[in-house]
Simulated assay, not measured.
Amino acid sequence: MLRPQEQVADAMLDGWRNQQLARNLTFSTIEGRLNAVRAFNRHADAHPWEWTPKMVDDWLGDLRAVRHLKQSTLRNYAEAVRSFCAFITDPAYGWAAECERRFGTHPIQVCHEWNTATHLQESEADPAKRAFTREELQAFFDHAGEQVERISGAGRKGWLPAFRDATLFKTAYAYGLRRRETRMLDLVDFGPNPHARMFGDFGVCYVRFGKAMKGSPPKRRSVLTVGPRDGVGGLDWIVEILTQWIEEVRPAFANAHGPALWPSERSLRIGFSQMNTRFAAYRDALRLDQGLDFHSFRRSYVTHLIEDGWDPRFVQEQVGHEHASTTSIYTCVSSDFRTRTLRKAMESTVDAALRTGRKNR
């Protein structure tokens, strides 16, 4: 080897990448982990067989104190380094013996419980992140509709993308979808529900790009269109909106020949940046809380269904959570709902006491 240290270090990273590919992890996950290891390597200014736990301490301390990264991000970085060290110290891959032969030393595990952050809670999301209140959600949707009318009335071209994004936001809320799930919807991903034929061809939304777990393929699920229940308005208004979008507005796009439900002006499918930019513009125009993001549509879906009395198990199945505890994290019931629930419980207790008193007389 002309540059043995550099070549061995590069070969280690290539081998680790292949190991992760064999585990069926997504390319984006693998690339993110590789970038984290490379970043640590640059900070340590040492080869993997020269790393020490103190170097990890200095690196994570710098990321937290100087760059102010969040705890979940720091833990992901540390986990990437820990996983890489586990690979190069595993006798099955022979890197320890190779380093001993070439450099007179061997790599060690540098990430331990005593120098990395541990995962102590089920949810470590930013506490500022929350669901929309019903009033905020209505204001957001009204504003999105007003922008379509304003741009169209001014004779400008942008009304088509504005209409698309307004429909996209409403669809994300009406079916409790994640951002990627919403973006990846195709025209064929809706179908009739034989038990609710009043919704026509939009009785079911088939989610094909759900959140994957531990190297598995995207998780599929079917989300039913929710109608009114016990006098409480449902989410079936989305049927009329989607019908108008697909039959009247979407065909005006140059890329309407593609399968995507949300075509872009320049490509077959809308991009994440377009979705994020439009959402932030509407939120900021209404001076809403910065803690509201695209995922707040999903939080709101769970919260509002629970408030309206839908069974928690049904809601869990709708959003595709494996555990009920995950759904409970999403539930941000309003103070009005809690007050109504408390009042109802107290009234039931008082009525039961009065009935018992009358019987005793």
Rank of each mutant, 00 (worst) to 15 (best):
R102N: 14
S273N: 00
M184L: 15
L292R: 12
L120W: 08
L261P: 06
R38L: 02
T29W: 05
D45G: 14
F163P: 06
T356Y: 09
A65C: 05
D126C: 04
A324C: 11
E146L: 04
V37P: 07
V207L: 12
D351R: 07
E240N: 09
D189N: 01
H304Q: 13
A196K: 15
Y173A: 02
M1R: 08
C205H: 04
H112W: 14
P251Q: 05
H68I: 13
F199E: 10
T225E: 13
A281Y: 05
W245F: 02
V81I: 15
S222G: 10
I306F: 08
T182H: 11
D142V: 13
A65L: 11
W245G: 01
A36Y: 14
P91H: 07
L286M: 05
T327N: 12
K54H: 14
L224C: 11
R283I: 02
L160K: 01
E247M: 08
H47A: 03
A11R: 14
D58T: 10
H195W: 15
E136D: 09
N41I: 12
E50V: 02
G291S: 03
E100M: 13
S273Q: 02
Y301K: 09
A174T: 05
A144N: 06
V223H: 00
R340I: 06
A86Y: 07
R33N: 01
C205T: 03
R221T: 01
S83N: 02
Y206D: 10
A36I: 12
Q244G: 08
R229S: 11
G320Q: 07
R183D: 13
E124H: 01
I306N: 03
H68Y: 13
R130F: 12
L185T: 02
P218G: 05
N276H: 04
E124A: 00
R67L: 09
Q147H: 00
V37N: 01
L185G: 02
V239C: 03
R178I: 01
T26G: 15
Q109G: 01
Q147Y: 01
R358G: 05
E98G: 04
L177H: 02
E247G: 07
R3N: 15
M275Q: 07
Y301C: 09
H295M: 03
R180S: 10
A280P: 00
I108P: 00
